[in-house]
Design a protein around this nucleic acid. Structure first.
Lengths: 126, 126
DNA sequence: TATAATAAAAGTAATGATTATTGTTATGAA
DNA sequence: TTCATAACAATAATCATTACTTTTATTATA
């Protein structure tokens, strides 16, 4: 039976308020302002729990640590090769690529992971 | 100035002959049969070099170690959630999704990374 | 409300994948 | 053949993450 935890609540709320897809370390450093002796292990455990419960999303961006997203609506991400920032993209419904991929393939395709990369608006401006 | 190395050559040839997208550890264990005292660091360094030179491809599959592919022709991969195998997919030309993603986005999209997941033919059969 | 069972915490150690360092060997230009 | 240095083997260090152990917090029940 799952019990309530103030730390888990704080992590969830923190992620809901951010839109920069922070890594566990960043979350840890921020939550520490409210809970000075929270441990990194607690952050990781709750991030795993929240992902499993579907209350947050875990984002793999190829290299570096995993990122976490409080927005569970399906959407795609853009990673800037210049500054490393992770941005939300407005495209929706690329589900057709699963059907495309399934042609000439005998297995069962459940879904896909995809992210785009390039130079973000801020880095283009410079 | 880059110098020739028998170990690098062996790694490249090994990858060219395989189609199962092995991890560095697997490559290491296999190359060791020809070079009994090759070290894991040498494998990693050469895999990085070969990727940079564009002679092999590095594949990030979300969790677990990185995989390497001797086939540098652009193609997509399928990861079996059941057995973990990484298979090649026959779809080609999904470049349009970059244009799709670029709409309503002010940055510059260079490309994307994508992989599909589900149950592979062998696991479906069981 | 008090008690007890246990989920979750803090603190810390361990792991797995990868990268860096150091001294030695192999490659290739002069 | 000599010499500069890229690449090597061996090993230590790092980074991200998970596991372990003891204590604390939550919650069902008396």
């Amino acid at each position: 039976m799952q019990k309530y935890s103030r730390q888990r609540e704080a992590i969830k709320n923190f992620l809901a308020a951010r839109h920069d897809h922070p890594a566990a370390e960043t979350i840890y450093l921020n939550i520490r302002e409210e809970f000075p002796n929270i441990s990194l292990g607690t952050v990781y455990r709750n991030l795993a729990l929240l992902s499993e419960m579907g209350e947050i999303r875990k984002i793999s961006i190829g290299s570096g640590p995993e990122r976490y997203d409080g927005n569970i609506q399906p959407h795609y991400h853009f990673i800037c090769k210049c500054c490393g920032s992770v941005l939300d993209l407005g495209i929706r419904g690329m589900d057709h690529i699963d059907i495309l991929a399934g042609q000439n393939f005998d297995g069962e395709i459940e879904g896909h992971n995809a992210y785009f990369y390039g130079t973000c608006p801020a880095c283009v401006a410079r």
